[in-house]
């Protein structure tokens, strides 16, 4: 038998880069995902630069102008003014900060806690799994909005208290997801091999299992971002969470309720802001799911 040298075809791109460009191609296929991405980017830019671009910075920190109460939308105040004569446009722009930040924080905390609990439960099984999952199931039976409201009310006002309250109700869903994935991956050959080589559990989980279940977590997280923002606004709307003068979309909307329908613009501007933010993250999440999990594509 003779050995012939095998010519390895030259690649113009590295394999990883090729994966990324293929993923981006799939993402571009859906113009709705692009719209979602565009709005999300716009929101982030607004949130970062809001303090510098708002027309009336003094209104954002509690300044009032009672002489100009309830001005309808005009060239001076694009979204009109509210009961205190504050410019709604400025308030809504700065309101994006609280919404985006708390949404991100909630999802982040939920991922960290949920992944830790789910990974440990799934990896060790037995009574550890039993105890952790029973607690998780219990939390899942309680309507999350009411639990978050109760905890937030008890902790008192403030962005961080609200974030903690919502996170308490959000991690169980991630724990369930991660546990299921870990149980599947635990049986795969590369994990068994790592085990045979004497790797300890922390290394197996961290180096071999978790990197392989990032996709479902990212998909869920991106779809959850919108709903986290919605929950933050919901708490604000019922009067729990961030207190004025810090502008927050839900709180702004709740304040506008008493002046409906005559001064409708005070409600419409923050309402549409919430709607757009949630919509954008949903579209982005759908797009990411198509990219990362092509099988789920419909």
């Amino acid at each position: 038998m003779t050995m012939t040298p095998i010519a390895i075809p030259k690649r113009t791109q590295s394999a990883r880069l090729e994966n990324w460009s293929r993923a981006f191609y799939r993402f571009r296929q859906s113009w709705l995902s692009i719209v979602g991405l565009a709005i999300v980017v716009l929101l982030v830019v607004i949130a970062i630069f809001a303090p510098w671009i708002v027309p009336y910075p003094e209104h954002v920190v509690g300044g009032t102008n009672t002489g100009a109460r309830f001005q309808p939308p005009s060239a001076n105040a694009w979204f009109g003014t509210n009961a205190l004569g504050q410019d709604m446009f400025s308030l809504v722009l700065v309101g994006s900060q609280v919404s985006l930040f708390s949404g991100l924080a909630v999802v982040f905390i939920a991922i960290v806690v949920g992944t830790a609990v789910g990974a440990i439960a799934g990896y060790f099984g037995g009574w550890v799994d039993e105890v952790l999952m029973r607690i998780t199931d219990l939390l899942l039976t309680i309507p999350s909005l009411i639990l978050a409201m109760a905890v937030a009310a008890a902790l008192g006002t403030g962005v961080w208290n609200m974030i903690i309250a919502i996170s308490i109700t959000w991690w169980p869903a991630y724990a369930r997801l991660v546990r299921g994935e870990v149980i599947v991956k635990k049986e795969e050959q590369f994990v068994v091999a790592a085990h045979a080589l004497g790797a300890n559990w922390l290394r197996i989980l961290g180096k071999h299992i978790l990197p392989n279940i990032v996709s479902p977590i990212v998909i869920k997280a991106s779809l959850d971002m919108g709903f986290a923002i919605l929950t933050v606004a919901s708490l604000g709307f019922v009067g729990i969470g961030v207190k004025p003068p810090t502008p927050e979309w839900g709180t702004l909307l709740s304040g506008a309720r008493s002046y409906m329908p005559d001064y409708w613009w005070t409600a419409v501007a923050p309402g549409i802001a919430i709607f757009l933010a949630v919509l954008a993250f949903n579209l982005l999440g759908d797009g990411l799911r198509d990219v990362l999990d092509p099988k789920a594509r419909r």
């Binding site: 709705l32 919108g226 919605l230 606004a233 919901s234 709307f237 909307l253 309720r257 409906m260 329908p261 409708w264 409600a267 309402g271 919430i274 709607f275 949630v278 919509l279 949903n282 579209l283």
Partner: peptide, 23 residues
């Protein structure tokens, strides 16, 4: 449907009140 999923219930409620009750 895309919009319906993203629509906050409380905002939709306010809009409905505005349209069907007030106007």
């Amino acid at each position: 449907a895309l919009g319906g999923i993203a629509m906050p219930r409380f905002f939709l409620g306010l809009l409905l009140q505005m349209a069907f009750a007030a106007w």
